[in-house]
Simulated scan of single mutants.
Amino acid sequence: MTSGSFTALALGAASMLALTAGAALADGEVNIYSYRQPELIQPLMDKFTEETGIKTNVLFLDKGLVERIAAEGANSPADLILTVDIARLTEAKDGGVTQSLNDDKINSQIPAQYRDPEGNWFGLTTRGRVVYASKERVKETAITYEELADPKWKGRICMRDAQHSYNIGLFASMVAHHGAEYTETWLKGLKDNLTKKPDGNDRSQAKAIYSGECDLGLANTYYLGLMMTNEKDPEEKEWAASVKVLFPNAADRGTHVNVSGMALAKNAPNKDNAVKLMEFLASDEAQTIYAEQVFEYPVGPRSKPSAIVAGFGPIKPDALPLAEIAANRKIASELVDKVGLNDGPTQ
């Protein structure tokens, strides 16, 4: 799919529909621009329509969401933005395509650390940036991010592109906690401990551990759930079965988490309906449905993760506000280049 193309999906309907400004103004609708795959949010949209009678129209884009809304300007049909990763949420805010919302129902459900201080975005679920460890070759049952630079792990760690947003989020949290100078030294240690140049995706790290290529891998929790339940590619179940999840820093500050989230579009033509949908998405009911679908942790105070996710073990999330972590992303990215992390270990 090119950046200029898109797929318009009206969830809960049998046919495709194109979003237009005229359709957006119709009563009883809400238009969602989403980076999240339609099949992952469909159960939520269906439940919302069942309970409210409000029709949901979802436009899925794999890139260029902020640019599209900005280009549409005041006539944009977008009411609500759904996305993953703090980077994309802050991108939407910084791109001027969101508006502030102060809603007691939402604020009471979503902890402050997962909300923009100015109300421009709200986290819905979290995913831990954890360590996948070989069940056979790693005896440790606990680890810290800081320990990943310990020489005892030399030649035993694998990871995806260091500039990927998931890793930059983690590295930004290290800057937030320890400062740039410490993080630079730590990144050098991590680089020296890599098995090879960073490559693949998070699933690839589990595959590399399964094959014996490395013993530890940085990855998000939810990928393990996806692999464990993958009926189309059963070999991924074998990869998942070969690893255990270590939640870094569980004994102190907690594990770094990122979010999926939502934001009210700047020129939402159906603002009241959009707010109703946002309130629904923040509810315990929706949080539980969403978490079950995506193998992530709900942020609602009374919501529970799926049985599969709970089976990974308890998670203690880092309490540092995500907005504070996001403010260090640029520095983290610069440090990755400075130490040459993507070049892999020095031979």
Rank of each mutant, 00 (worst) to 15 (best):
Thr7Ser: 07
Thr7Pro: 15
Leu9Gln: 09
Leu11Met: 10
Leu25Ile: 07
Ala26Asp: 08
Ile32Trp: 01
Ile32Thr: 06
Ser34Val: 04
Glu39Phe: 00
Lys55Gly: 10
Arg68Leu: 11
Ala70Asp: 13
Gly73Ala: 09
Pro77Thr: 04
Asp79Phe: 11
Ala87Ile: 12
Arg88Ser: 14
Leu89Cys: 11
Ala92Pro: 08
Gly96Tyr: 15
Val97Gly: 02
Thr98Cys: 07
Gln99Ala: 15
Leu101Glu: 03
Ser108Asn: 12
Ile110Gly: 01
Tyr114Thr: 12
Trp121Gly: 02
Trp121Cys: 05
Thr126Arg: 06
Thr126His: 06
Arg127Gln: 08
Thr141Leu: 08
Glu147Pro: 05
Leu148Glu: 02
Ala149Arg: 01
Asp150Gln: 07
Gly155Lys: 09
Ala162Trp: 00
Gln163Pro: 00
Ser165Phe: 15
Gly169Val: 05
Val175Gly: 01
Ala176Gly: 08
His177Cys: 09
Leu194Tyr: 05
Ala206Arg: 04
Ile209Arg: 01
Leu216Val: 10
Ala219His: 04
Thr221Lys: 08
Met228Phe: 15
Thr229Pro: 14
Lys232Glu: 12
Asp233Gly: 13
Asp233His: 11
Asn249Ser: 11
Arg253Val: 14
Gly254Arg: 14
Val259Glu: 06
Ser260Cys: 10
Gly261Val: 04
Ala265His: 14
Ala265Gly: 07
Ala274Glu: 05
Leu277Glu: 01
Phe280Pro: 02
Gln287Val: 00
Ala291Ile: 03
Glu292Pro: 10
Val299Glu: 01
Val299Gly: 02
Pro301Phe: 00
Ser303Leu: 04
Ser306Tyr: 10
Glu324Leu: 10
Lys330Arg: 11
Asp337Asn: 09
Gly340Trp: 13
Gln347Val: 05
